[in-house]
């Protein structure tokens, strides 16, 4: 007999709402039997749900024969993949060299203050997810951030916060 341990589960993963995995069928059909399709499958899945739900891994495993451990390894390796839902708008703050020398750190800090979330987190209202990224390749406009597909350049803290506020306002008015 060994020492008695308490079976404490580590910090449990948040239980998320179940998703409709049948949405993945066309995607799986498209890539079935093609080699090297793991990453496109995950990208496609993320496009469907905004993140990769647990069920999706299981579905991919049973429908394509891909191994869960490998998929999970890939999904956690690449910065692009998310395992939990994200906000409606993803703010990608460029932390490239040019942006760094133009003091993007201060801009990010102002945004963090405004949004009250840390890097990688999502605001409580689900509107924004903040991500710092390596380089968006718009160095001449540094500091730069990208919200959705739109790029905003030559930022300072004030300007960045204003963009967020404007978007919030728009969101509220459109709701009403």
């Amino acid at each position: 007999m060994r020492v008695a341990r308490l079976h404490k589960n580590g910090s449990s993963v948040k239980v998320l709402k179940p998703v409709d995995i049948s949405l993945m069928d066309p995607l799986i059909e498209k890539y079935k039997g093609k080699k090297g399709s793991l990453i496109p499958l995950l990208q496609g899945t993320q496009n469907l749900y905004g993140y990769i739900p647990r069920e999706a891994f299981q579905k991919l495993a049973s429908d394509t024969g891909l191994k869960i451990s490998e998929m999970y390894g890939v999904a956690t390796f690449y910065a692009q993949f998310r395992l939990s839902p994200v906000g409606k708008n993803i703010i990608r703050m460029c932390h490239g060299t040019a942006c760094h020398v133009q003091n993007v750190t201060a801009v990010t800090e102002d945004l963090i203050d405004e949004l009250k979330i840390k890097d990688g987190e999502t605001t409580e209202d689900g509107l924004f997810t903040l991500e710092t990224v390596a380089c968006l390749g718009c160095c001449s406009l540094a500091p730069v951030m990208m919200i959705g597909e739109e790029t905003h350049g030559k930022l300072d803290g004030k300007k960045a916060v204003k963009i967020i506020k404007d978007m919030r306002r728009k969101e509220v008015t459109s709701k009403n």
């Binding site: 932390h95 380089c135 160095c139």
Partner: peptide
Amino acid sequence: DEGDPGAF
């Protein structure tokens, strides 16, 4: 896969 920060 141009990834160098500061290159575009």
